[in-house]
Amino acid sequence: MRPVAWLSPLLYGAVLLAGGYAGLAGLGETRFGWFVGGLVALVVLDLAEPRYARPVPFLVVRAALVVLVAASDGSGMARVLLLLLPFGAYFAFGRVVAVVLGVGCVGLVVVAFGVTAPGWTHDVERVSDLLMFAVGLVLTLAMAAVAVEEQRGRVRLAELSAAAERNRLARDVHDGLGHHLTAVSVLLEKASAFRELDPSVADQALDDARESARRALEDVRRSVRALREPFRLSSALAELAQGLKVDVECAGDENGYDPAVLLAVYRAAQEGITNALRHADARTVSVRVHCGRSGAELVVADDGRGFSAAEEGFGLSGMRERVAAVGGAVDVRSAPGQGTRLTVRVPR
C-alpha cells in the first residue's frame, strides 16, 4: 500500500472524465470498451496489490494497462497515468529505479508523438504537453520521496518510542519492585542469621520482610491502576508514606498535568524516601510537593548521614533520566553528616 493512496483514484477519475467527454463530444476517438475496461482493471489491480507482495509482476501489468488505456483514449489525458509507474516503483524499488523508469516514460511519450504526429517538434501544443509531462514527473518523484521519508520517520519514531518505553519499564522495576525485593532479601538474611542468637530480632526481621513484600504488591497494584485510571500524585504519595516516619505535604493543583510528569515526580519522591530511610539512616524525612501553573517542584529532605557526589548510584542516575525525559531537572545537595536535600523541578 502506497502512503499517497488518493493519487491513483484522482488520476483515474480525471482520465475517465476527459476521455469520456472527448469521445461523446467527437473531439477524439475514444474506444470505450478498451478504455473503460482498462481503467476498471487498474482499479482492481490497486485493490489486489496490498494482498500480494510481488512488485515486479504488478509493475509490468500496470504498465501494460496504462498503455492500453492511453492508446484507447481520444483526449490524450491518459498519458498522465504513466506517472503512476515511477511513483509506485519509488516505494517498491527505490529512487534510482524510479528515476530510470520515469526517463523511460518520457521516452515513451516522445515515441508516441513521433508515431501519431510526425513533425510534432514543430507543434507548440505537443511540445508543451511533453514539457508539462516532464514537470509532472518531477513533482511526482518529489511527492514519492517526501512520502517515503515520512514513512521512515514514523518507523524511527516508533523505534524511539519503544526504546523509551523499555527504559521507563526498567526504571519502574528498579524504583519500585527493586527496592522492595532488595529489602525482603536483606531482612530474610537477617532473620536467618539471628534465628539462634536472638529470636526476637529474627521475628522482627520477618515482620519487616512481610511489610516490604506487602509494599511491593501495593506498588504493582498502583502501577496497574495507573494504566487503568488517572494517576493522582497526592494519593500515591500518601499511600507511599503510610506507616513510615515521613511527613508529606502536597500543595497546588495537579489537574492538567501530564500523567508521565506526575509519575516522574512520584518516582523521584519514592527514590528519595527509600535512600533516606534505608541508606542514610535518617530519623526524619519530609516531602514537599507544589504543583503550580507553570510546573511542579518536589523537595525531599532528611537528616541522615549524607553522601558525597562520588557515591551517587544507579537509583539517582535513573531518576535524573526519568525527570529529564519529561523536561525536568534534578538537584541533589548532600555532604557526609549533613543530610540530603533532593529537589526536582518539572514543567507542566
Rank of each mutant, 00 (worst) to 15 (best):
L45T: 12
L217W: 15
A70K: 04
L59H: 11
V148I: 11
H279Y: 08
A325R: 11
V99E: 07
D175C: 05
A213C: 11
E211N: 08
A64Y: 04
A260C: 08
F32D: 12
A158Y: 07
G315M: 02
S161W: 11
H279R: 03
E229T: 15
A301P: 13
D302C: 00
G315N: 00
V299A: 08
V56R: 13
V246P: 08
V138H: 05
A282I: 03
V15D: 12
S294N: 08
A191T: 08
C105W: 01
A329K: 12
Q338D: 14
E49F: 05
L141E: 06
L130T: 00
L42E: 13
A251P: 14
F35G: 06
G252K: 02
D303T: 03
V103W: 00
A147G: 06
R222V: 04
E29K: 11
R228W: 14
D198R: 05
G304A: 01
D46W: 07
L244I: 03
P347H: 07
V100T: 09
G114F: 01
L316Y: 11
G19W: 05
L263K: 09
L10S: 12
S234K: 10
V43E: 15
A134Y: 03
V289P: 05
I273H: 00
A5P: 05
L131V: 12
